[in-house]
């Protein structure tokens, strides 16, 4: 058994036995922890509390969704700006084509008169 396997098994064994500790041992552990926490600054205490006490994080329930909310907000904003940029490009392209049609040698009627379309087909040299 190498060192890694040994430490994994040891940790598992210790965790398995955690629930079987006598109440007196639990009380001494809690007192020691509280004494230690009393000596560290308030901010560090909060961090230690958040990290160490599993199952009581519901007290911070409102905060746990902050990163997710930020992610959703970020994605929504980036998607919105993507739409803005895409629409602007689309309008710019259409405006450039319109300007070309409006300044072309042929009048607008040549592009909308279906009779002219028929005339072009009619006068087209027949292909073999």
């Amino acid at each position: 058994m190498n060192e890694q396997e040994f430490s994994t098994r040891l940790a598992r064994r210790l965790e398995d036995r955690l629930d079987d500790l006598p109440p007196t041992v639990m009380a001494r552990l809690r007192a020691a922890r509280e004494a230690a926490l009393a000596q560290v600054p308030v901010q560090a205490q909060q961090l230690a509390f958040a990290g160490a006490v599993r199952g009581t994080t519901h007290r911070h329930g409102g905060l746990r969704f902050v990163p997710l909310a930020a992610l959703v907000l970020g994605l929504t904003l980036s998607f919105y700006w993507y739409q803005v940029a895409r629409q602007a490009t689309h309008h710019q392209d259409a405006a450039e084509i319109d300007a070309q049609v409006l300044t072309d040698d042929l009048p607008i009627a040549a592009y909308v008169d279906q009779g002219f379309e028929a005339w072009l087909k009619h006068t087209q040299p027949s292909r073999p």
Binding site: D113, Q114, G115, F116, E117, A118, W119, K121, H122
Partner: peptide
């Protein structure tokens, strides 16, 4: 012209 338009329609 009218006939041409009709023809294409």
């Amino acid at each position: 012209k009218h006939k041409l338009r009709q023809a294409i329609q």
